[in-house]
Structure formats: structure tokens, C-alpha cells
Design a protein around this nucleic acid. Sequence first.
DNA 1: TTGAATGCAAAAAATTTGCATATTG
DNA 2: CAATATGCAAATTTTTTGCATTCAA
Lengths: 139, 139
Amino acid sequence: MSDLGARLRAQGKRLTTQRERVLAAVGRLAHATPDEIAEEVAADGGSPLPVSTVYRSLDALQELGLIGHTHVDHRAPSYHLAEHATHVHVVCRGCGYVGEVPLEAADELVARIEHRLGFAADVSHAAVHGLCATCREAP
Amino acid sequence: MSDLGARLRAQGKRLTTQRERVLAAVGRLAHATPDEIAEEVAADGGSPLPVSTVYRSLDALQELGLIGHTHVDHRAPSYHLAEHATHVHVVCRGCGYVGEVPLEAADELVARIEHRLGFAADVSHAAVHGLCATCREAP
DNA sequence: TTGAATGCAAAAAATTTGCATATTG
DNA sequence: CAATATGCAAATTTTTTGCATTCAA
């Protein structure tokens, strides 16, 4: 927490309350779009932030490696704390449920991609789509 | 090819030249955004299609299972023929290069997701980000 | 002090929708 | 003929930008 400022400064960036509030909101929501994050920030008691500031804060926090995002659906980058990036995200096409499995579950895939293409894959950014246990049965 | 009409009809849909042109364009481009597809369609000699028709055609062809899409980056659903969905897409963060590895490379991941969450994963929709061989070395 | 960040409003993209008209089956 | 799709324009939605002002370091 306290070294957030240090990490920012190390990149010539600054610690502002806005960035702290956005980071806190991302932490509280776990998986959220910029829009939802803006709402959550507004709900923390302080005055709401302009969307532009939310976007810029998300960018900054991401460059810092504190948060990351995946593409849960067409029009929705979903942000989460970097610590959540220790999972592969799994998204249900039926109900939108977002689950996760440990990164290691993809070790073999990563190895094969590396082997075939010389590609360094970062699976933590991937969202795997499919149907959850419940939606598999439903019509 | 000729049964395209039949497949459409089977779903109460119709075969139109617009849809044929969009499908052909997707086939020619392999990986493209709606925008690029609209351009490609315009380049096929006929008159350009309004974007709305392109979007609607893509939806129709997708519901039909003839094409699919992955999320190559933030703002860009990338469409491809369904036959291309026999690969997992790999996207380079550095240069934007899009590669693919056979679906089987993800078999173990799919099995683990199934096992842990009861989830039926469809990896062909996933785009795995990372750095290609070239960009790994560059600064 | 000074460059980085904010706030605000306006501009760009990207996608969707309403509706009269044209087409397919 | 009837139902579906198109074309076009306007409305949404999502994200980005310009710029004067404020604020952290």
C-alpha cells in the first residue's frame, strides 16, 4: 500500500487520491468494466470521477502492473487486481459467470505455444469462453 | 457452399447477396474486424454495404456457425471462418501478429477446466496474448 | 517551481436501432 | 403474399483528446 507511491514515482508518475480510489474500487469489484469501476468509485463517498480520469487511472495502474484486464465479452474489458492474474479466466456464455482456474492449468498449452511458435504466452490475459455447469444443462 | 442457402433457411433466415459477400470477405481476410470486413466487401466490385448490414450479416453468419470471432485486442472483435476455429489464436502484444496453434494444444487446459469447474470450455474463442519470437528480443 | 494529473467538455470510434422500402422464399 | 433483410440516418455506447487549472514532489 505504502509503496504504491514509490512504484509510481519510479516511473515518473504520481500518487493521487484518484488513482488510489480507482485501485481500491478495482480491488472491491474483482472483475469490472471501466463503467462499473466509475460507479464503484462514486459510491465510495468521495465525489465521482470523470470517466476520462477513470480510464487514465486504469491505464496508469496497468502500466504499473498493479492491475490487468481480460476481454470478458465483445464490448467489455474487465479489470482486476494483478494478483488475480494468477488465474486463467473462464467466462460462461450463458449467464456471464466469470470463474478462474490456476495458471498452472495452462502450463502445457503455454509450453506448446512456446515450442511451436517461439511465443511467450501470457495466459493470465486470456478469457476462455464456454458454458458453466448450470448452463450446460439448460436449453 | 451451395447449401449455404439451405442452412440459412433451416433457421428461418434468408440467403442474400450481402451475406454472401460478407462471408466471402471474411474468408479472404482470415482475421478481420467488422470495419476491415466492410472495406474488403466494398473492394469486391459491388457497391459498398452500410456498416449496419455488415454487422447484421456477421451476426447471422455467426449464429449459423459459419464464422466465429476472437478478441484480439481491446476494441476489436476479429472474425474468421469457422474452420479457422480449429486453432487457438495467439496474439503478439508487440507487433499485433496473430498466429495459431491447433486446438489440441489446449486439451489439457480444457480437461482441467472441466474437472475443476464443470465448465465446457470452447478454446477456439480464446485469444492468448504474449510476445512473438521477434518481439521477445526487441527492447 | 514544474511537470504530471485532473476536470470538463467536445470529438472520435464502434455498434445498435427505427423504419420505410426492397427481396426472398 | 408474408416475413425477412436492406439501406440510411439517427441514436447509443464506449473511449479518447485538448486544454486550462490544480496538485504532488
